[in-house]
Design a protein around this nucleic acid. Structure first.
Length: 188
DNA sequence: ATCTCGATTGGCT
DNA sequence: GCCAATCGAGATG
C-alpha cells in the first residue's frame, strides 16, 4: 500500500508532521495530474497552543481539528487558502500545515495558476501551493480519500531540520516547523 | 452592523 | 528588510 491512510495520521502531531516530509501529494483530475514532494510542514495543537486555530476551543473553523485523522482543514488567512491534515485519534485536536512543496508533475498548470514562470515561486509557501494545486475551501472537512487528493509514500531518505513556526503571533517554546535540509523549494 | 486582525504574499526601499 | 493589500471569521454592540 503506497497510499497513506487514516492510521498514518492517527499518531502524535509532531511525528506526522515529520513523517510527511518526502511524501508525494497528488491531485488527479480528468485531464491532468499534479504532484509534488512535501518539503516543509508545521504542527499545530489544541487549546493549549496559542498559535493554533483551536486556541479558543471549537469554532466554525477549528472544530474539524477534533475530527477523524486524515480529514482536511482548509481555511483562509490574508485571503490565501491554507491546507492542513488532521492528526491524532478522533476527539483529540491536532493538525499539520503543509507549508511548501517541490513541484513534480503538472508544472505547466501550476505556472498558469500562479502567473509565475519561476519554478521556485510555484509552491514555496502555504498560500502559494494551494493556488498552484487549485485547492480551496471546497476541500474543507472532507476526508482525504473522499477527494481527488492522495499522499503517496516515497522510499527516499530525507535529512530533516526543525525550527520555530513561521509567522505566528504567539508561539510555543518548542520547534514545530519541520523541513528537508538544503531543499531549494522551502518557503524561506 | 461594524470593527479588528491574521498559520501570507509580493513589491519596493 | 519593511509594508500595504485583502477578506472572512470572530468579537462586540
Amino acid at each position: 500500500m503506497r497510499e497513506l491512510t487514516k492510521s498514518f495520521f492517527e499518531r502524535d502531531t509532531e511525528k506526522v508532521a515529520e513523517d510527511l516530509l518526502g511524501k508525494i501529494l497528488v491531485k488527479k483530475t480528468d485531464n491532468s495530474e499534479l504532484s509534488g514532494k512535501i518539503v516543509e510542514t508545521e504542527a499545530y495543537f489544541g487549546p493549549e497552543d496559542p498559535a493554533s486555530r483551536a486556541s479558543n476551543g471549537k469554532t466554525k473553523i477549528s472544530k474539524v481539528m477534533w475530527e477523524e485523522p486524515g480529514t482536511i482543514l482548509v481555511y483562509v488567512v490574508h485571503s490565501h487558502d491554507l491546507i492542513n491534515f488532521i492528526t491524532e485519534e478522533k476527539g483529540t485536536p491536532g493538525a499539520v500545515l503543509i507549508r511548501a512543496i517541490e513541484p513534480l508533475e503538472g508544472k505547466k498548470i501550476m505556472k498558469r495558476r500562479r502567473e509565475r514562470k519561476n519554478i521556485y515561486e510555484l509552491c514555496s509557501g502555504p498560500g502559494k501551493l494551494t493556488e498552484a494545486f487549485g485547492i480551496s475551501k471546497e476541500y474543507n472537512m472532507k476526508k482525504i480519500n473522499e477527494t481527488n487528493l492522495r499522499i503517496i509514500k516515497n522510499n527516499e531518505e530525507v535529512e530533516i531540520g526543525c525550527s520555530s513556526r513561521i509567522g505566528v503571533k504567539e508561539d510555543l517554546p518548542g520547534k514545530y516547523r519541520f523541513f528537508i535540509k538544503n531543499n531549494k523549494f522551502l518557503s524561506r
